[in-house]
Simulated assay, not measured.
Amino acid sequence: MRIGFVVYPNCSLMGLATSAVFEVANVVRGENVYEMLFLSEKGGLIKTSPGLVLETKRIGGIAIDTLIVDGANEPKPASPAMIKYLQSAQHRFRRVAATCTGALVLGDAGLLDGKRVTTHWLFARTLQEKCPTALVDEDRIFINDGKIWTSAGMSAGIDLALALVEADLGAETARSVARKLVLYHRRSGGQSQFSELLELEPKSDRIQTALNYAKKNLHRPLTVTDLAGAAHLSPRQFSRAFRDETGQSPAKAIESLRVEAARILMEQSRHSIDVVARQTGFADRGRMRRAFLRVLGQPPQAIRRNVRQETEHLRGQSGKARRADKPSVTKKHALRGTASAF
């Protein structure tokens, strides 16, 4: 299966890290399942944003199975030649993907019309304005809608590539690739782009220490006294400093951290909602449901349902790949081009 990476001057080098996923998949399988090419409008040398120069082949005339459009820190409109090439990709290639702001390039070519897509949250509104008929979800790591795959910020391209490998070669191969890449875990497409600890952005080490303590002890009741002790402040000093630095009360921040931890458990485990509620300190599912509605605007059941649907979709694609004859599939694709506790 030939993977074509579309690049252009000042494209993101981080986005091209997705190529490592396919490279390691070949190692895991013990055969060259994937072949990788770097493509540009005119071919030749292309300088990436940090200065590394790539040797590329000219777009057009090369049989491709999966096309992946790289993103850029400062995206620019696609050229007429690139738009024409991408428009033909819908019919010639089996899949078309974009990492980060590469989605804007697909949008220029009209490939996202009517599709559910994502991109880096900083450019989500720009993408929606460019593609008014697309359903832009700025809070997802990656999304697959038919032949179109899109991912969030640069590192999310790794998650997208792992999902592509899982669709082709099965979940066990994708897990083996993730282990060889020393990834802590494979993020599901439904996982949020945002982290509550990053959103809070405390200015002092003391408040950061208290937040780290809270995250490690969410299963326990947490009081202002507990957090103040971790920060080596009096409860009154802590409450005042916490609100000054984060703009939130300690109670609201802890609730958000609990919701984030519960959401991740819902995405990555098969624990029941009652078990998830207990492990994240909500005590019961009713309290967790109310917190989910306040913070995420949807109940825990919706999170679990979205993950299940995405998993079933990937399993369906994996099943198709497993039913095919593996050695011949590789050749065919290459030739075909397709005080109180909180």
Rank of each mutant, 00 (worst) to 15 (best):
L162S: 06
K147S: 05
D108G: 07
K147A: 06
L111Q: 09
A174D: 00
E138R: 09
T133I: 14
W149Y: 14
A98T: 02
D108H: 10
R140W: 10
R92L: 15
C100W: 03
D139N: 13
L122W: 05
A98Y: 00
C131F: 03
W121M: 11
V96P: 02
N144Q: 14
L127M: 11
E138W: 12
I143C: 03
R125G: 08
L169K: 11
K180D: 06
V136N: 00
P132F: 11
I148S: 15
R140Q: 15
E166D: 07
T126H: 15
S176Y: 09
A174C: 01
E172M: 05
G153V: 10
L181S: 04
D159V: 04
A124E: 07
R179F: 12
A152C: 05
A156G: 02
G102Y: 03
A163P: 03
Q90L: 15
A156Q: 02
R140T: 14
R175P: 01
D139H: 12
R179G: 01
T99F: 15
L106P: 08
A178F: 00
G146N: 04
V136L: 00
T101P: 11
T126Q: 15
D139C: 05
A161Y: 04
K130F: 09
F142E: 13
D113Q: 13
E166G: 01
E166Y: 03
A152L: 09
R179E: 07
S176H: 12
A167S: 15
Q90A: 14
D145E: 06
L162Y: 03
A174T: 01
I158S: 05
L122A: 14
H91K: 07
D139R: 11
L104P: 06
R140G: 09
A174P: 02
R125Y: 07
D113T: 14
P132W: 10
R92G: 14
K130I: 09
P132G: 05
D168V: 08
K180R: 15
R92C: 11
T173W: 00
T133H: 14
A178G: 01
V117E: 01
T126P: 11
T118P: 06
K147Y: 12
R179W: 07
I158V: 04
D159W: 09
A152R: 06
L162E: 02
A167D: 12
A134C: 13
L112Q: 07
R175C: 04
E138L: 13
P132H: 05
R116Y: 14
E172F: 07
V96S: 08
R92I: 12
T173Y: 03
A171F: 11
A134H: 06
D139S: 12
T118D: 02
V136G: 00
I141P: 12
A167C: 13
L127K: 11
L104N: 11
W149K: 08
W121D: 07
L135W: 04
S176C: 12
